[in-house]
C-alpha cells in the first residue's frame, strides 16, 4: 500500500513534468519577436547572415508539423517530416540532458543555469532557513501569548513585514547598510581583489550576502509567523488540548507533545511551496542587489528572446516546484496518520 502510494505520486509528478516541457516550448514561441533580430542588434545584418544564424540554432526548421501559423517555413500543414521539427529536436536533446545553447552567449544553457543556480540557492536558502526559524518562533510565541500585547506587537510587525514591497525594502536596507554599516552595494564578491585566504574570501561574500538575505528573511518571516500563529491558535482550542491539560501536562509539554505536530501540517505545505519557487530566485532582490542568481538570468533572457535559456530556466523551476510538492505530500503522510491510511 505504501509503495503504490509512492509510485502513484511519482507517476503524477512525471506526467506534470512532461506537460510542462510541452507548455514551455510553445509558451515562448507564441510570443511576438524574432530571436535573431533581438539577439543581434545590428540592422545592417544581411539576409544571408541572418539565415546562417537561424540554421546554426535550428530556427529554420518548422516548429511542429501541423501548426502552420507557428512555422517560419511555409510548406503546407502536415506535410513536414515530424522528425525534422524544432519540437522533436528539443525533446530529443532534452532526453540526452542537453538543454541547448544560449542564443546570447553561445554557451551551453545547462552550464549557465548551473552557475546561477548555486548563487540563488545560497542566497535564498539562507534567507528561507532564517525566515522559517524566526517566523515559526515568533508565531509560536504569539499564539502562546494570544491576545496579549506581545501577540499584538508580533502580529503588527509580521503584517507590516509581509506587506512591504520587496524592492522598496531592499533599496532602504541597501541605503542604510551601505551608508551606516559600510556594507557593499551589490554583487557577490568584491571584484579585482586578491584574497589572502579562504576565510577572507568567505567573509567578503558574507558581507555581500547580508543585506539581500536580510531583505528576503523579513519578507518571508511575516508569512510564516502569521500562518504559524493562526494554526496554533486553532489547534490550542481543540478538545485534545483540554484533555492534555486535564492529564496534568504543563504548558511546555502540551505545546511540544500535542500542539506543534498538529500545527506543522499547514506549515509544511507553505514551506514546500516557497522552497519550490526558491529556484526561480527572488527576481526583485537579485535585481536590487545585483546578485548573479537565476531570477536575474530569467529577466535578462526574456529581453533577449533567448529561448533555450528560458526553456531551461522554466523547466528547472517547474521541476523544483513539482518535487517540492511531492516532498511535502510525502512529509504529510509521515506527519499525519490519517493520510497514511488512505
Amino acid at each position: 500500500m505504501r509503495a503504490s502510494y509512492l509510485l502513484g505520486k511519482l507517476a503524477w509528478a512525471l506526467f506534470t513534468i512532461l506537460f510542462v516541457i510541452c507548455l514551455n516550448f510553445f509558451l515562448f514561441r507564441v510570443l511576438p519577436g524574432d530571436p535573431v533580430r533581438s539577439g543581434v542588434r545590428d540592422p545592417r545584418l544581411t539576409q544571408e547572415a541572418q539565415q546562417a544564424i537561424r540554421e546554426r540554432f535550428g530556427l529554420d526548421k518548422p516548429v511542429i508539423n501541423c501548426f502552420e501559423s507557428l512555422n517560419p517555413v511555409k510548406s503546407g500543414p502536415c506535410l513536414i517530416n515530424p522528425f525534422e521539427t524544432q519540437f522533436f529536436l528539443y525533446v530529443r536533446n532534452l532526453l540526452t540532458g542537453d538543454l541547448g545553447i544560449s542564443y546570447h552567449t553561445n554557451r551551453p544553457v545547462s552550464t549557465m543555469l548551473g552557475e546561477r543556480l548555486w548563487n540563488t540557492i545560497l542566497l535564498i536558502g539562507a534567507g528561507q532557513i532564517l525566515a522559517i526559524i524566526l517566523g515559526m518562533g515568533l508565531g509560536i510565541l504569539a499564539a502562546w501569548k494570544a491576545r496579549t500585547p506581545i501577540d499584538f506587537g508580533a502580529l503588527l510587525f509580521s503584517l507590516l513585514a509581509w506587506s512591504l514591497p520587496t524592492f522598496w525594502l531592499g533599496i532602504i536596507l541597501l541605503f542604510a547598510g551601505s551608508r551606516y554599516f559600510n556594507l557593499p552595494l551589490g554583487g557577490m564578491i568584491t571584484p579585482g581583489v586578491n584574497f589572502p585566504g579562504a576565510w577572507a574570501r568567505v567573509s567578503d561574500m558574507l558581507r555581500h550576502m547580508l543585506l539581500p538575505t536580510l531583505t528576503y528573511t523579513i519578507v518571508f518571516l511575516g508569512e510564516y509567523m502569521l500562518i504559524m500563529r493562526s494554526t496554533l491558535v486553532d489547534v490550542l482550542s481543540e478538545d485534545y488540548i483540554l484533555t492534555a491539560r486535564a492529564k496534568g501536562l504543563n504548558h511546555f509539554q502540551i505545546l511540544k507533545d500535542h500542539a506543534l505536530k498538529n500545527a506543522m501540517l499547514p506549515m509544511v505545505t507553505i514551506i514546500a511551496l516557497n522552497l519550490g519557487f526558491t529556484v526561480a530566485g527572488a527576481v526583485q532582490i537579485e535585481t536590487v542587489f545585483s546578485w548573479p542568481g537565476l531570477g536575474g538570468a530569467i529577466f535578462e533572457a526574456v529581453g533577449r528572446r533567448d529561448y533555450p535559456m528560458l526553456q531551461g530556466a522554466f523547466l528547472l523551476l517547474a521541476v523544483s516546484v513539482i518535487f517540492a510538492n511531492l516532498g511535502a505530500e510525502l512529509l504529510y503522510s509521515v506527519l499525519d496518520p490519517r493520510i497514511r491510511a488512505e
Binding site: 478538545d239 485534545y240 484533555t243 505536530k261 498538529n262 496518520p337
Partner: peptide
C-alpha cells in the same frame, strides 16, 4: 469527556 468531542490527539 463527551464521546462527540475530539478528545484524543489524532496524530498520536
Amino acid at each position: 469527556f463527551q464521546g462527540a468531542m475530539n478528545a484524543l490527539n489524532p496524530v498520536r
